[in-house]
Simulated assay, not measured.
Amino acid sequence: MRILVQRVSEASVQVDGQMIGQIGAGLLLLVCAMQGDDEAAADKMATRVARLRIFKDDDGRMNRALTDTGGAALVVSQFTLAADTRSGNRPGFSSAAAPDDGKRLYERFAESLRNQGIHTETGQFGADMKVRLLNDGPVTIWLDSADRA
């Protein structure tokens, strides 16, 4: 599972001009399930995100996690994180999970965040979405479940 984590002051997502998800301070999470991912990977990544210490403490150091701050999460599916750009000018996406698996794991990831007490809003899987954010920092971090044993 690949996740692009962005610390935000606010973020929202629209589909067909309708606001479907909106948060204040917290994390915008662009999520892509990859071939071979399973529910355990989704749960593990949700825990990593919830515990990722990228919020400032009283001394101004990035030492607090989303679970410490009471911040929210906006989870948006983005299969293009699977892009393979090693050849040619057109990215390939064959390493992304099949749509049914991708949707199931995307939903599992969001539910796992909720189960950890994090207010979680979502986009709409497979939809053409318009995402707005006010990046805080900016802080942007790339997570890939394949990078950890």
Rank of each mutant, 00 (worst) to 15 (best):
Q35C: 13
M62P: 11
A50W: 09
D38S: 08
T85Y: 01
R51L: 12
G24F: 02
R86V: 02
V49I: 01
D68L: 01
L66E: 00
R86E: 13
R90L: 14
D43G: 09
T47V: 09
A96R: 04
D37L: 04
F79T: 00
A82G: 08
M34Y: 00
D84A: 01
G70L: 03
R61T: 14
T69F: 02
A50H: 06
M34I: 02
R64N: 02
A50C: 03
G36I: 10
N63P: 07
A72Q: 11
V49Y: 05
K56G: 06
P91W: 02
L28V: 03
A42C: 03
S87W: 14
E39K: 11
A73V: 01
A50Y: 09
A41M: 09
D57C: 03
L81I: 05
D84I: 04
G71I: 02
F79W: 05
T67P: 03
D59A: 15
L28Q: 10
G88H: 06
F79A: 00
M62D: 15
D43H: 08
V76L: 09
N89K: 10
V49T: 01
F55Y: 12
R51Q: 14
A65S: 14
D59C: 15
G24D: 06
R86N: 11
N63R: 11
R51N: 13
D57F: 12
A96L: 06
D59K: 04
G92T: 15
